[in-house]
Amino acid sequence: MVAGGPGVITVRYFAGAAEAAGVDTEQAATGTADTVRRALVEAHGPALARVLERCSLLADGVRVDGDTPVPDGATLDVLPPFAGG
């Protein structure tokens, strides 16, 4: 679990992101997309950092990146690129 702050989100990892994180789901503190990414890397290490470089982040189904806030109570999906169609 990533240290909580004033607000909490649920992070769901898929495919290679779940493998790199070592968990499928966890709670994390709210913040911007970038601050959440940094906190996840601090919690899980360089293997997750490498995967996150290629992942999309979706907060309640809406893509977030950079300084876009991830709202309190959101579900943040960490989606690596998928092959196929």
Rank of each mutant, 00 (worst) to 15 (best):
A3G: 12
D67A: 13
R50E: 15
M1E: 13
I9L: 05
R37P: 04
G31F: 03
I9N: 00
S56G: 11
A39K: 13
A3S: 14
I9P: 05
A17N: 06
A21M: 08
Y13S: 03
D34Q: 09
A3C: 08
E53L: 10
G73P: 11
A74R: 01
T75R: 12
D72A: 11
V62G: 00
C55V: 13
A33G: 04
L52W: 03
F14T: 13
A39R: 15
P81N: 07
A17Y: 01
Y13N: 04
E19T: 11
P80K: 03
F82I: 15
F14Y: 12
P80F: 00
D67T: 15
A47T: 15
P71C: 03
A43Y: 07
T75Q: 10
A33C: 04
L76Q: 04
R63Q: 12
V62E: 10
A28R: 06
V23P: 02
A49R: 14
D34K: 03
P6S: 14
R54D: 13
A59H: 06
G85T: 09
D72P: 06
G66D: 06
R38N: 10
D67S: 13
R54Q: 14
F14W: 10
G66L: 04
T68S: 10
P69W: 06
L58A: 10
G73R: 06
D77P: 02
A59S: 11
T10H: 05
A39F: 04
R54C: 02
C55H: 05
E19A: 07
V23Q: 06
D60N: 14
V51F: 00
T30V: 12
I9D: 03
V8A: 10
T30G: 08
P6M: 13
G73N: 09
T10V: 12
M1Q: 14
A83W: 08
V11T: 08
A15L: 05
R63G: 00
L57E: 01
L76I: 11
A33Y: 01
E42A: 14
E26C: 07
A29G: 15
G84K: 07
T35W: 01
A33V: 10
V36N: 04
G45Y: 08
A74N: 04
H44T: 12
G45V: 13
A83H: 12
T10D: 12
E42H: 11
T35D: 14
D65R: 14
C55F: 04
P69F: 03
V23R: 09
R38K: 15
I9M: 02
L57K: 03
D67K: 12
G31M: 08
G73H: 05
G16I: 13
V78F: 00
G84F: 00
V64P: 01
F82C: 06
A21V: 10
T75I: 13
A21T: 11
D67M: 07
D65V: 14
A47P: 09
Y13K: 06
V2H: 08
G73D: 10
G31I: 09
A59F: 01
D77V: 05
P69G: 02
G31Q: 09
F14K: 06
P71Q: 08
G16W: 11
Q27C: 05
A29N: 09
G66N: 06
V78I: 13
I9R: 01
P81D: 03
V51G: 00
R54K: 14
D67W: 01
G66Y: 02
